[in-house]
Amino acid sequence: MNPRDFTAEEIEAIYRVIRERRDMRHFRPDPVDPAVLRRLLWAAHHAPSVGFTQPWRFIRITERSLRERIHVLVEAERLRTAEALGERKDEFSRLKIEGIRECAELLAAVLTDGRERQVFGRRTLPEMDLASLACAIQNIWLAARAEGLGMGWVSFFDPVALARMLEIPPGGKPVALLCLGHVESFYPRPLLESAGWEQRRDLEDMVFENRWNRRAFGVEG
């Protein structure tokens, strides 16, 4: 066997982490071991990035007063989102969308300033810096699940207001608030699926071959 190969058990562990990862909203207050937090950030920093730019920055929120101000910002956007949803307003309002106050660790995932200078891989697709940061966030998510920690991605905020709050330089942009911490248990299914908000679509409906809307798998309907 090639020494670089993974065992069947190691391969299954990777797929299990992917399968059991959840966007968590309920947390216990127990602190996260600093060594574990550093491993999660190491995982993020080893994500792929366009042109090897590593456009991610992570701000750890440790001031309680700052966390409270961020919660207020998120709550304001939650209310605006509820209004924008029209007939689904009440249904949305019953959902728990974040755990900012409860989680042990709160991180802001930020795109750095000066990204416009990077042409490698971004000349026709400037949004690839965002894709790179998303890969870093996913690495944290999967590593957290492997460590037995929950993570929730919060996007309910005004990015301009949050950037000002976190003193991010002009051109930088906060993309996500990441709630990290211990949980009583992981949801058996995605929370929004269990709440009836949406269902996971069939893979056969999402993968095409050669041309748009030509199924790669299954029988043409």
Rank of each mutant, 00 (worst) to 15 (best):
E10Y: 04
I11M: 09
R94V: 09
E87Q: 10
G121H: 05
W56M: 09
R21G: 04
V36C: 08
M151E: 03
A144I: 00
A146S: 07
V50E: 00
F92H: 12
Q138T: 15
R67M: 02
P34E: 01
A47R: 13
N139S: 13
C179I: 09
P190G: 06
R64E: 14
R211F: 02
R4S: 11
A134Y: 01
E184W: 12
A109D: 11
R201W: 01
A109C: 05
R164W: 07
R201F: 02
N213M: 14
P190E: 04
V32S: 02
E77D: 13
R39H: 00
F27R: 11
R22L: 02
A176L: 04
D202T: 07
L178V: 07
L162K: 00
G150N: 03
E9S: 06
E63F: 04
R69Y: 06
A43E: 01
E184I: 07
A161H: 05
E68I: 09
R189D: 13
P188W: 01
Y187L: 05
E75C: 02
R28Y: 08
A8K: 15
I97E: 07
A47E: 00
R80H: 01
D33S: 12
G218V: 04
R215A: 06
E193R: 00
K173N: 14
G196R: 11
F92W: 05
R211T: 03
S185Y: 03
L149K: 00
A131L: 14
E12R: 02
F27G: 07
N210V: 15
A104F: 07
A143F: 01
G221V: 13
R22D: 09
R78W: 13
A13E: 08
E116N: 10
S49C: 12
A44V: 11
F52H: 06
I14G: 05
Q138K: 13
P31M: 02
A161P: 07
P34R: 05
M1Y: 06
L178H: 03
G152Q: 13
E63W: 02
W56L: 07
D30E: 15
E147P: 00
I14K: 05
R25D: 05
Q199C: 06
R164M: 04
R214L: 15
L95S: 12
R164V: 07
L107H: 08
G121Y: 00
L177P: 04
L107R: 07
A43L: 03
R21K: 14
A43D: 00
I137Y: 01
I168Y: 00
A44G: 04
D23M: 14
A134L: 09
V74S: 14
F92V: 07
L125N: 11
R115H: 10
R88K: 15
D5V: 10
P170E: 08
R4A: 15
C179K: 09
R215G: 11
L178P: 01
P55F: 03
L178G: 06
R101E: 12
R60L: 09
L85N: 01
P170R: 05
L79T: 09
E77R: 12
V17P: 00
I18C: 12
E220W: 02
A216W: 05
G86P: 13
V219F: 11
R16D: 14
H45L: 14
V17E: 01
L85S: 06
E105N: 11
